[in-house]
Nucleic acid binder design. Structure first.
Length: 271
DNA sequence: ATGGTCGGCAACCGA
């Protein structure tokens, strides 16, 4: 059966709930994974989403910063929220879809918001960059993120790293800019490799082609300058590596009124 | 080389 999943760093779900509704009406994914909800769990706009048909919600939110959520038209059977680097930051939530969702084989979905890492790409002087690197190391070392023996799993989110040359507008000019420095790109790829994850976006768009999901608020004309980065990702376990039937980056959402700086990424899986 | 913009929440911090 087809399972459609969208991931989107919304940068305040309460401020942009109308954009979320617009996206859900246009795309009608089965599941929406949000990052940077900036919203405690008891203030999450669940009623509005339920009216749109998304009655199943797993939130991991906090006041003011970070926060992730999974909203779904399909029921899920397990929810988990993991903490990383011994911090209380809300940066992960996962659910498992099984028989109730109509899946013969269960599939676990992880939704991540990796620390951005600050401006200075030196962990010795910038604790935020040190935190980012430690977070990526912990993702690599976490056994629960290593789907084995044909396990079906999906990992999505704002991973805040653009690992490939054509994941940024200028590889050369970005080498010392946090999000594309060699050390963090290597650590992200190490986490991906350790879990055997397949990069579903790059399975659909060749590595030689530019592919972005984020454009800075700080450019006068994001569309004209097009200095984007691919910070948002969809990984699938080897068992479903060849089951990705489509992948869409909703670039137009960057031009919506009062947009997020990230745009939605949608994959359709035949599972 | 520099500074440029957001959102939360009420000072700046995080991005």
């Amino acid at each position: 059966m087809p399972l459609t999943i969208t991931t989107w760093n919304i940068n305040s779900v309460r401020l942009r709930i109308d954009l979320v509704a617009k996206l859900l009406k246009a795309v009608r994914p089965d599941v929406l994974c949000l990052q940077e909800t900036k919203c405690p769990n008891d203030a999450f706009p669940a009623k509005r989403l339920a009216r749109l048909g998304y009655t199943h919600v797993a939130t991991n939110g906090q006041k003011g910063y970070h926060g992730v959520a999974i909203v779904s038209r399909l029921p899920f059977e397990a929810k988990d929220a993991r903490s990383f680097c011994d911090k209380q930051d809300c940066r992960h939530v996962s659910v498992t879809f099984g028989e109730q969702a109509g899946l013969k084989d269960p599939a676990t979905l992880h939704n991540f918001y990796v620390p951005a890492g600050g401006d200075e790409p030196d962990p010795e002087i910038n604790p935020k960059f040190a935190h980012k690197l430690a977070f990526l190391d912990e993702m690599r070392a976490t056994a629960g993120l290593h789907p084995v023996n044909g396990t079906r799993a999906i990992l999505v989110g704002d991973l805040n790293v653009a690992p490939l040359e054509h994941d940024v507008w200028s590889h050369k000019q970005m080498l010392k800019v946090v999000s594309h420095t060699p050390v963090e790109c290597e650590k992200l790829v190490a986490a991906q490799t350790a879990g055997g994850w397949v990069d579903a976006m790059r399975a659909k768009v060749p590595e030689s082609e530019k592919l972005y999901t984020w454009w800075s608020y700080r450019s006068a004309d994001w569309q004209a300058s097009d200095r984007g980065r691919r910070l948002d990702h969809v990984w699938v376990s080897p068992a479903i590596g060849d089951r990705v039937s489509s992948m869409t980056v909703a670039r137009a959402a960057r031009g919506w009124p009062r947009p997020s700086d990230h745009v939605p990424v949608t994959v359709k899986l035949e599972i």
